[in-house]
Design a protein around this nucleic acid. Structure first.
Lengths: 207, 207
DNA sequence: CAACCTAACTTAACGTTGTTAAGTAACGGA
DNA sequence: TCCGTTACTTAACAACGTTAAGTTAGGTTG
C-alpha cells in the first residue's frame, strides 16, 4: 500500500506544520493575539485549511497544551535520581518555576486559563504516571516523605500536601506572569520569591 | 448654577448605570463573554453611548477592577481589630480566599489576567494605605510579626515575606478557579486546601 | 481507458466583535 | 434668535472565528 501511506504521511506533515507555527506564535504573542489567518499565512495555506486538521482554535490549543504537560513532566527526569527526598522536592520546585519563566504564555494557557471541561473519553495524555504527569511526580515525592517520616506528625494526606505545595509554587509564577507590570507592589526579585516559597514549603512541612 | 450641576449629575448617573450593568455581566459570565452591545442593551442605550463615558472596553474593566481592589481591602477592616498578630494573619488568609471564591470572575481579572502597564499618572487608587490597599494591610501584619519576634530568625524582609504569603494564598484560589474542572487531579475540598495553605504559611514562618 | 469519487484543499461569505464616522436632537448662554 | 456644546443614535468599518460552496488532483472501480 504505497500511495495510501504516503497520503497519510503528507497529511500528518501538514498537521505538524500547523502545530509548529501555532506553537511559536502562541508562545511569543499569546493565544488571543494570534489569529487563524496569521497561522495560515505562516505556513502558506488558506485559513480554512487548518479546519481540515483541527476542529477549531480551541482544539489546536488543547493539542499544544497536552504536549507541554508532557514537556513539563520530562523536566523532572534528571531530578528523579536525586536520592534525598527533601532535596528532590526542592529541586522539583525550582524546575517547575523555571518552566513557567521559560514559557510564560504556555504556562498561562496550561494553568491560569479556565478551559471547558473535556470529555474523559478523548483524553490523550497518560495521567498518574510520574514520568508523564508532573502532579503524579510531585505526589510520589510527598508520599515518600510521609512514609520515611520526613514530614511532621499529622501530615499524611499526600494529595492534600501535594496540592498545597503545587499551589504555592503556582502562586509565585502566576502572580509573576499576571502582575509583573504592576508598579504598585515593590516586587522582590523573582529568584528570591521562588527561593522563599520553596523554603516556606519545606519549613512548613518538615520536622 | 442649577442646570450645570444637574447635567453633571445626570451624566454621572448614566456612567454608574453602565458600570453596574457591566459589573453584573462580567461577574456572571466573564469579561470576554460579555459584549459592549449586551451591556448597552441592559441599560437601554446604544452601544456607542458607552464610548462617551469610557475610552474602551478595557477602561471599563479597569474602573471595575479598581473598585474591587478597594472592596477586597475593606473586607479586612474587622480583621484589623484582632489583637494577636498571627491570628490576624490567619484570618486575613481566610478572608482573601473567601473573596476569590465569592467573585471568581472578578478575581480572575484582578489577579490572573495580564494587563497592559498603566500610566502611573492616572492611577486612581490610594496605594500604601492599609485601609485601601490589601497588600499594604498584609505587609503591615508581617512587619508587626517581624518586629515582635513572632517569625523565625533571618526572616526580616517584610516585602519578601508578604509576597510569599500572598503567592501562597493566590496559588490556592487561582488554581481552583482555573483548574477546578480538570478531572485528572483528585482535588481535596477547597476548604481543606485553604486551611492547609494557611497552616503551611504559619508553620513555615513562625518560630 | 474512462467515469467517478473522495481527500485536501481554496475562495467567498456569514455573523459577531470592538470601535469610529457622521448625523441629530435638546438645551444653555450670548 | 441664533449658536455651540453635550449627549446621544444610526450606520458603517475592519478584523475575527468559522462555514458553505466550489475546485482540483489522485486513486479506485466498472
Amino acid at each position: 500500500m504505497g500511495p495510501r501511506e504516503r497520503r497519510e504521511r503528507e497529511r500528518e506533515e501538514v498537521r505538524t506544520r500547523i502545530l509548529d507555527a501555532a506553537r511559536e506564535l502562541f508562545a511569543n504573542e499569546g493565544f488571543e493575539a494570534v489569529t487563524m489567518r496569521r497561522i495560515a499565512d505562516r505556513i502558506e495555506y488558506s485559513p480554512t485549511a487548518i479546519y481540515f486538521h483541527f476542529r477549531d482554535k480551541e482544539a489546536l490549543l488543547k493539542e499544544l497544551c497536552d504536549h507541554d504537560f508532557g514537556a513539563l513532566a520530562h523536566r523532572f527526569t534528571d531530578i528523579a535520581r536525586i536520592p534525598d527526598t527533601i532535596e528532590r522536592l526542592r529541586q522539583t520546585g525550582y524546575a517547575y518555576a523555571q518552566f513557567g519563566i521559560d514559557y510564560p504564555n504556555h504556562y498561562r494557557l496550561m494553568f491560569m486559563t479556565p478551559h471547558p471541561p473535556i470529555d474523559p473519553a478523548d483524553q490523550e495524555l497518560e495521567r498518574g504516571n510520574p514520568e508523564e504527569d508532573a502532579y503524579a511526580f510531585l505526589k510520589l515525592i510527598v508520599a515518600e516523605a510521609v512514609a520515611t517520616g520526613r514530614f511532621r506528625e499529622g501530615f499524611t494526606d499526600a494529595d492534600l500536601i501535594a496540592q498545597t505545595i503545587w499551589a504555592g509554587m503556582h502562586g509565585v509564577i502566576s502572580l509573576h506572569i499576571a502582575k509583573c507590570n504592576d508598579g504598585w507592589v515593590d516586587w522582590r526579585p523573582l529568584e528570591d520569591r521562588t527561593r522563599s516559597m520553596v523554603g516556606m514549603i519545606i519549613d512548613g512541612f518538615t520536622r
